[in-house]
């Protein structure tokens, strides 16, 4: 909704990754993010931090759901402020609560929704939907009412609805917080298998195993940035001293 028209023909450069330049964000008069300068090119990036530290706001910056109050965010060289639409096509987003993101009454319809917006022809749409449902074990549920799925299946459905659009990067905001151990492991495996660049906000530190880079956000600032082991210990130390 923020920008109706793209300002110029976007020229994307996929090698540039995601760049945050002097980013700050305020809600009302509350400073939520400050002084963020980052270049995200790694394939597996984790974000950890206390409740209310600004993780979700940070995640939303990456696909233009939130436009920064100051500074700028570039995705493949495209400024999220000027090219929201193209940026959203490149960056998928999975939320914590699957109930909030499933918008159609039955499974297959919901998965098809994003493709309709992209103007994918009906035949190709059906094919891609079937393929994704198959891959995430939902093939038998194509015509099922979404509200009858289990919590884990709902989250898989939400993820399928994003992956079917084939985004180049995917942001997950606490994808496993509402799931049991089995489904958490499933989602972890799914994330591991993805070829795309993945940014995961999580409280589940096990999920970060094998990641390339983990950021610790505290009170709106990136306080630690490094490999998972050192970032996670820094995070634990930080929380202990609260």
């Amino acid at each position: 909704m923020r920008l109706r028209r793209e300002t110029a023909a976007p020229v994307a450069d996929p090698t540039r990754g995601v760049e945050l330049r002097a980013v700050g964000h305020v809600y009302g008069d509350r400073l939520v993010l400050a002084d963020i300068d980052l270049h995200l090119t790694e394939r597996r990036i984790g974000i950890v931090g206390a409740n209310g530290s600004g993780k979700s706001t940070f995640a939303r910056l990456l696909n233009g759901l939130v436009v920064p109050t100051t500074g700028s965010v570039l995705v493949d060289g495209l400024d999220t402020r000027a090219h929201v639409r193209e940026v959203r096509r490149r960056v998928g987003f999975v939320f914590q609560d699957p109930d909030a993101q499933i918008v159609y009454p039955t499974v297959a319809e919901d998965v098809a929704y994003g493709l309709e917006n992209q103007g994918v022809p009906a035949a190709e749409r059906a094919e891609r939907v079937a393929e994704v449902l198959e891959r995430y074990g939902l093939a038998g549920h194509a015509d099922h009412p979404a509200h009858l799925l289990s919590g884990g299946q709902k989250q898989l459905l939400a993820i399928a609805g994003v992956l079917v659009m084939r985004p180049a990067r995917i942001v997950f905001d606490e994808p496993t917080t509402l799931l049991d151990l089995v489904n958490t492991r499933r989602v972890a495996q799914l994330v591991e298998d993805l070829e795309q660049q993945v940014v995961v906000v999580t409280h589940d530190l096990d999920l970060l195993h094998g990641f390339d880079r983990v950021l610790v956000i505290d009170d709106g600032r990136v306080v630690t940035d490094g490999p998972p082991d050192s970032s996670v210990s820094a995070y634990r130390a930080l929380m202990v001293h609260r």
Partner: peptide, 21 residues
């Protein structure tokens, strides 16, 4: 509150794209 997230999820999946030809 859920409606807020739903709207974001819709936008993230292209709900506010320009109408197609």
């Amino acid at each position: 509150q859920m409606a807020h997230t739903t709207a974001e999820a819709l936008d993230a999946r292209g709900a506010d794209d320009e109408p197609l030809p």
